[in-house]
Design a protein around this nucleic acid. Structure first.
Lengths: 352, 352
DNA sequence: TTGAAAGCGCTAACAT
DNA sequence: ATGTTAGCGCTTTCAA
């Protein structure tokens, strides 16, 4: 009633400020500020608090975070950098990050960075936006981006990629264990000639999985036959690598692939060569992407706790933002083997 | 040389402000502000401009967007609301949105909203963050969220879901055409008894595809046999619906599914019932998710231009943000049929 | 317990 | 072409 210059809670014309609320409640702006902050609410008398809340609700007050960000230096926003959201490992990671962020009422500023150059530019812009921290899934080995982020002094953690220099916290899956699980499974089936389609060796996961593969073979006293490096973690790169492998004189009995996409590319090459999985050759993947249980044959692979990877990374970031000295610098999560139909005992050779 | 209080470009200690740059360049802050804004740079003499840029670079100046947002009311940020990022249709949509945003140096604030209640709360917080606009992939039919967003007066567009009330712009795929493509393909193969596993009828796509299915059958003078509604767009819901269908007396010859996940659930049910696709029954999907070409049998489905869906939605949003009266309120993109091995001519019954 | 006042870093009139 | 000035909306000392 009386003459109100606003039309209602949802009116957009002139956004409602803390000053409007103060006026409506008959108190000072600083009182409103206190009343609306959960941490300082206790300083206010119950009576005034009720008045302020009523006024805020009636006017449809919405705090202006840009203003509070300017004043406090906190934006309640974290930046998330991904190499490629269409790669199926990242959505669950993102979901984990968001679950953690949302529980703290933080938002995610999301961006793709195909290559190092754009990644640097994006981080630069994110710093300009004054994100409170950074989760990065993109760093290559010895990435200059890590130097940059470290120098900028902003809280940051890596996910799905470790920092070899140890300056940034990271949450990763145990790549060596993953490869050991795959190799042990194949060895138990009776395979001896086991090859590896390795990931790009400029990525930490590419190196880690390759080393894990080599170590697992060494533990059993056998040699790789052989290891071929893919140019990317893609189906196409997997097909090409597998073609190379099949062109060699002595065909392996089994192939451990650096990830599912590469394994599916290997399927493509097998099909093109008129060979059958697992009859002519067993194949394992890595990641347990959606639908690999439905391909033909269903893929034996290593399952990663993707969601937890993201969640833990974000939790670690928030600890760092809160100023807690992050003691645990790299968290390593356990993968598990999922046996399906792409692996079987090697075919007994005619003549034996 | 001289006594500099800062240690270098990357120093984080005391963030460099426009004032520091002005001092270093021997000019006034407003000159710096102008020199650093591409649109007003032309007002500055080349000489001064060079000085300012040199000073900014030397000090490692990074504009504070929170301050500029407070002043201008523009955050260069759009909010993106998704129901579920792990659903494979959304990553390419997101990618399209980001491509558009990135080209304008905008960031995306991303959030999931499982249900309507949380969606409302998230939008509320996004408004507090002063996003410049909203892309929503979540609205159900007659969603109160649309009322809210409209009332808030913030630029917003829907993607992958139309607004029946026509207040918000939207970019969608042509669901009716998609179903017609599937039905026509099956009819040409000789199928007559064609069933539909429909999506949830509280979602625009669920209704649209169902109507498209019905219309396509009507055009050919045949009746659905029958239509069963799934409780969700999920593999599990598809399996359950297919079980219901198979439990009925007269089994259909072909089933048009509302999406790929549901179709894969139908595969599950077929497998459990000891039936073969397409020998005993043809199945079509919708979306052409990654890997559905590799499942067994490879799925005949309808491909959507997901990336373009996202890209166009964002473009539409930016037009709206720029204040251009959006004449085209709903953009409908064309899907295309992808024929694979899950559809075949109906088996000729014994005795014919 | 509440009020007063200053200022975060920037932009945009307005003045020169 | 550049300088002056005010103020965006909020938080946070300091005072009462």
């Amino acid at each position: 009633m009386a003459s109100s210059s606003r039309t209602g809670p949802a009116a957009v014309s002139a956004p409602v400020t803390i000053r409007d609320v103060a006026q409506a409640a008959g108190v000072h702006v600083s009182t409103v500020s206190r009343a609306l902050d959960p941490r300082r609410r206790s300083l206010i008398s119950a009576e005034v608090l009720a008045q302020v809340e009523a006024a805020a609700r009636k006017l449809g007050y919405r705090p202006n975070r840009a203003a509070s960000a300017l004043r406090t230096g906190r934006t309640h926003t974290i930046g998330v950098l991904l190499p490629d959201i269409t790669n199926a490992v990242f959505p669950p990671i993102l979901e984990g990050i968001e679950a953690s962020a949302a529980s703290r009422h933080y938002f995610m500023l999301m961006a793709h960075a195909a290559d190092n150059g754009t990644a640097r530019a994006i981080v630069e812009r994110m710093l300009a936006q004054r994100v409170d921290g950074l989760v990065m899934a993109t760093a290559t080995r010895d990435d200059p981006l890590i130097d940059f982020v470290t120098a900028a002094g902003i809280p940051a953690v890596l996910v799905n990629r470790a920092d070899d220099s140890g300056r940034l916290g990271a949450v990763v899956s145990d790549d060596r264990l993953a490869m050991k699980l795959a190799v042990d499974h194949l060895a138990q089936l009776g395979h001896v000639r086991i090859a590896h389609l390795a990931g790009p060796q400029n990525l930490p996961t590419g190196v880690g999985r390759r080393q894990g593969f080599e170590q697992a073979l060494r533990d059993r006293g056998i040699k790789p036959s052989p290891i071929i490096e893919c140019t990317a973690y893609s189906r196409d790169a997997g097909r090409l690598a597998m073609q190379q492998l099949l062109a060699r004189p002595k065909r392996p009995q089994a192939v451990v692939c650096c990830n599912d996409l590469v394994a599916l590319g290997a399927y493509d090459a097998m099909l093109a060569a008129g060979l059958q999985v697992p009859h002519d050759l067993s194949i394992t993947g890595h990641n347990d992407m959606p639908l690999v249980d439905l391909v033909s044959p269903p893929l034996t692979t290593v399952r990663l706790p993707h969601r937890e990877l993201g969640w833990r990374a974000a939790e670690m970031l928030f600890e760092s933002i809160a100023g807690e000295a992050g003691s645990a610098s790299t968290v390593v999560l356990r993968p598990e083997l999922v046996v399906r139909a792409s692996t079987a005992a090697p075919r007994v050779l005619a003549g034996h």
